[in-house]
Design a protein around this nucleic acid. Structure first.
Lengths: 162, 162
DNA sequence: TTCTTTGCAAATCGTTTGCAGCATG
DNA sequence: CATGCTGCAAACGATTTGCAAAGAA
């Protein structure tokens, strides 16, 4: 994600307006490594912008996504998550509890080359990598379940997504 | 994604039932490289299963996701997409038209090593990589817009996501 | 027969839209 | 002071749930 200054300049250059809402949302997101949902960001922003509407938040987030400054993605929990880190890092996503964390640096030596600028005619702005599996807590929970009664691990999947 | 036989065996082993709905959904998805939405799959499946309900389709898809056989992801178009390819391939996603294609083999020589079985205590079942940018058509469209009137490329972003 | 799965209809809830007032450049 | 942005309330629509009937094992 670009700096607040770069974003402001870019908006002005296109005839847009640099409002306090935009600036505060940009600031809130820029150093956020928690992969927040819109709702989570909203709660945090209300502390500084009590009049902020969800509408505006979504508008600004969608702008950032279309500009290639922020990535939106789905962890399976029924909420859209946003991530300002466009540096090509890797993420770990749990298939059971839907948590997301960045792969710790020391666990990931095989850092691949940065994204090429063009692939198959596409201009590339951003790259990510995801690993899906079970987090330590869910692994333990699943193991316990398996022990207790060797049968069905996943009972009713009709309520997985949210 | 496992074969239909493996899935059937796995379901039976857990006390589940191998219904025609499950089998037909599995078959429909297994060789699908189009990254379909639930709705798209539903339309295609109605040809062979006219009584199929969306409810059942979502149930079965969610099972597959939780089992690590299928990945669900968001392209930004407001629909969840599903992909049975768990082999760690790379995808190209357009930030403007939200299309997705797999990176063509000949465009992607730097095939990274297969996913490790464990990272930071997580057991890993699946890996993917995504490149975000603009597809050739959207690049051309954006270039034309820029030519015509040098100003705002993205007018109103309030209707991006769907 | 037993217990899981299916399908229908209704509900849910995250996200988007219409529009009037407001603030930026 | 012109235009783009914001906030409210209402709408939307994809996905999920409750429950009774159907069908594997």
């Amino acid at each position: 994600m670009r700096t607040v200054e770069e974003l402001a300049e870019s908006v002005r250059a296109q005839g847009g307006k640099v409002t306090s809402q935009r600036v505060l949302i940009w600031q809130a997101l820029r150093n956020d490594k928690t992969h927040p949902t819109a709702e989570a960001l909203y709660e945090r922003l209300r502390a500084v912008l009590p009049r902020l509407s969800l509408t505006t938040l979504y508008t600004v987030l969608n702008e950032l996504v279309e500009w290639g400054d922020v990535r939106r993605f789905d962890t399976g929990d029924g909420h859209i998550h946003f991530d300002p880190d466009t540096s090509g890092h890797a993420e770990l996503i749990c298939l059971r509890c839907h948590s997301v964390i960045d792969v710790p640096d020391d666990e990931y030596h095989a850092q691949p080359a940065p994204a090429p600028q063009e692939i198959a005619g596409y201009s590339i702005l951003m790259r990510t990598e995801q690993y899906y599996g079970f987090c330590p807590a869910c692994r333990a929970a699943l193991a316990t379940l398996k022990e207790e009664h060797g049968e069905r691990l996943t009972s009713d999947t009709r309520s997985i997504a949210r």
